[in-house]
């Protein structure tokens, strides 16, 4: 009953068709240093970012940064720190005490420091949120300038669940004071390879 009456009412009340504007992406192009811009923006949204000369240094860096992490999930073959297994039997709540998740980022967006990840990388959707700290590994070559490019890059994905993640969870709901670590991950570190 709701549907037909709503659609009928829209038909009666909507204006004549107004055409859809085309997005002229050229208006947004700038010559910028993608890596530098990305790094700057990651920091401005409260994330940590480090360029690694070689992926072999990864585990050492992670251990330095997160010395107290015990329960660790890693999706990266180059890291041997992972000790938590995720299988089809794993329930979201089982990850309640996960200290650290190490995931691969698909690509980064320079203008806002965001990284696209999707559940093709993490079989259990709660993972990047429930983990106390999050590490994302990103190839330097996988950076784009802005969101218009970003949507081109994910246009042909299998659509299940995915997200742009920009920095650690945060809130400013108490007197506009920025507090890092609200309901999601308390910190985000990005390693650029």
């Amino acid at each position: 009953m709701g549907k037909s009456s709503i659609l009928k009412s829209i038909k009666e009340n909507k204006p004549t068709l107004i055409s859809l504007p085309e997005i002229d992406v050229n208006s947004f192009e700038e010559t910028i240093n993608l890596v530098e811009t990305f790094k700057k923006n990651v920091e401005s949204v409260g994330g940590n970012i480090k360029e690694l000369g070689q992926i072999q240094d990864l585990d050492l860096e992670i251990k330095n940064r997160y010395p107290n992490a015990k329960r660790i999930f890693s999706q990266i073959s180059e890291s041997v720190l992972g000790n938590v297994q995720i299988s089809e039997q794993t329930k979201p709540k089982d990850l309640e005490n996960l200290d650290l998740a190490i995931l691969k980022g698909v690509f980064g967006v320079a203008e806002n420091g965001a990284i696209w990840i999707s559940d093709e990388q993490f079989s259990i959707r709660i993972l990047p949120f429930i983990t106390n700290d999050l590490v994302l590994i990103l190839q330097k070559k996988d950076l784009c300038q802005h969101m218009h490019h970003a949507y081109k890059m994910i246009a042909n994905r299998t659509r299940t669940f995915g997200l742009f993640i920009s920095g650690p969870s945060k809130t400013a709901d108490i007197e506009q004071c920025l507090v890092i670590g609200a309901q999601g991950a308390m910190s985000l570190t990005i390693f650029l390879i």
């Binding site: 997005i23 923006n41 401005s44 949204v45 967006v109 203008e111 806002n112 420091g113 965001a114 949120f129 802005h146 969101m147 218009h148 970003a150 949507y151 081109k152 246009a155 659509r159 669940f161 995915g162 997200l163 742009f164 993640i165 920009s166 920095g167 650690p168 969870s169 945060k170 400013a172 999601g184």
Partner: peptide, 25 residues
Amino acid sequence: EHLGVFLRLLARSATGQPITTYSSH
């Protein structure tokens, strides 16, 4: 692709962040 337009505007207009921390699809 229109999300490219709206997500660029939303958080900047709202709080001055370049994008919200999580934009979940």
